[in-house]
């Protein structure tokens, strides 16, 4: 006891203090620190490099690869600006595979690994679903802006002064900038939300969740193809690009509702 010096803190808590302080502190718990949905979005955004850096890195790698392929074609005799050159450059699907793969991974992992921590921080499952959707929208808008700006630069510099078609390509709308923006926005959002359902299925049913979901979606597609195969020729003939926009919109809505359905009563194990 003699070891104790002069007490620095002289206030003594009493039993009554305990209760009154408790009550006052619990009465100040009316609202979370910030809008819970935005808090979840910010939780995802904490991984800045993953959100903003890595996708652009993938775009950069695809651009470099496209340039290398163009150089090889050039050395092989194809002339920049020729019709053959433009058609083959514009049909390069590299961006879809590279970015698609990464976005798929990010969509699954961000839902799967962030959910537990969000719940620990007191987020509701509803706030988590909406906040994650908003975060997906942030990434989709960001990439849409980045790719639209790059495509605009490509057009403004007359295809980088040498005739390289890197962003003025078929899957980005062949240099139609509003189309580029819409394609990237809807494409990325669809990719992330669909991947998110698989993450949600994993949270809810662990390993068998994504497997069953994959089999289910596969079956629906097969059945749809079986039904539509006889009219395949007419469908292809009548095809309009906006059909894809509708399909993406349906996928985004279905995936978001699916995530909410799966997470609504998900528990932490």
């Amino acid at each position: 006891m003699t070891v104790l010096g002069t007490p620095a803190q002289t206030r003594t808590p009493e039993a009554s203090d305990v209760t009154s302080n408790f009550n006052s502190s619990s009465s100040s718990t009316k609202g979370p620190a910030m809008n819970p949905v935005l808090a979840v979005t910010q939780l995802h955004l904490t991984r800045k490099r993953m959100t903003f850096g890595v996708p652009v890195l993938y775009v950069g790698v695809v651009a470099v690869l496209s340039i290398l392929i163009s150089l090889i074609a050039w050395r092989a005799g194809s002339q920049p600006g020729s019709t053959g050159w433009i058609v083959s450059s514009r049909s390069n699907p590299g961006l879809v595979w590279a970015l698609g793969g990464f976005l798929g991974y990010m969509g699954v992992s961000s839902t799967a690994t962030t959910f537990r921590f969000a719940i620990t921080l007191g987020a509701t499952r509803r706030a988590f679903t909406l906040g994650t959707l908003l975060w997906n929208l942030v990434i989709a808008s960001y990439l849409a802006v980045v790719l639209t700006v790059l495509a605009a630069l490509e057009l403004a510099t007359n295809h980088w002064f040498v005739g390289f078609y890197i962003f003025d390509i078929a899957i980005l709308g062949n240099g139609n900038l509003p189309a580029t923006f819409a394609i990237v926005l809807l494409g990325v959002l669809a990719m992330l939300t669909v991947a998110g359902v698989f993450g949600a299925a994993w949270i809810r049913f662990s390993n068998r969740g994504p497997i069953l979901l994959g089999i289910g979606i596969g079956l629906v597609i097969v059945v749809a193809v079986l039904i539509l195969v006889p009219q395949a020729a007419q469908i292809v003939a009548a095809f309009e690009p906006w059909w894809l926009a509708i399909a993406a919109g349906v996928a985004i809505i279905a995936a978001s509702l699916g995530s909410w359905r799966l997470l609504r009563r998900a528990i932490i194990r």
Binding site: P7, Q9, R11, T12
Partner: peptide
């Protein structure tokens, strides 16, 4: 003389 507060104790 003062004794330590209940918290310090």
């Amino acid at each position: 003389s003062a004794v330590p507060s209940a918290t310090d104790l």
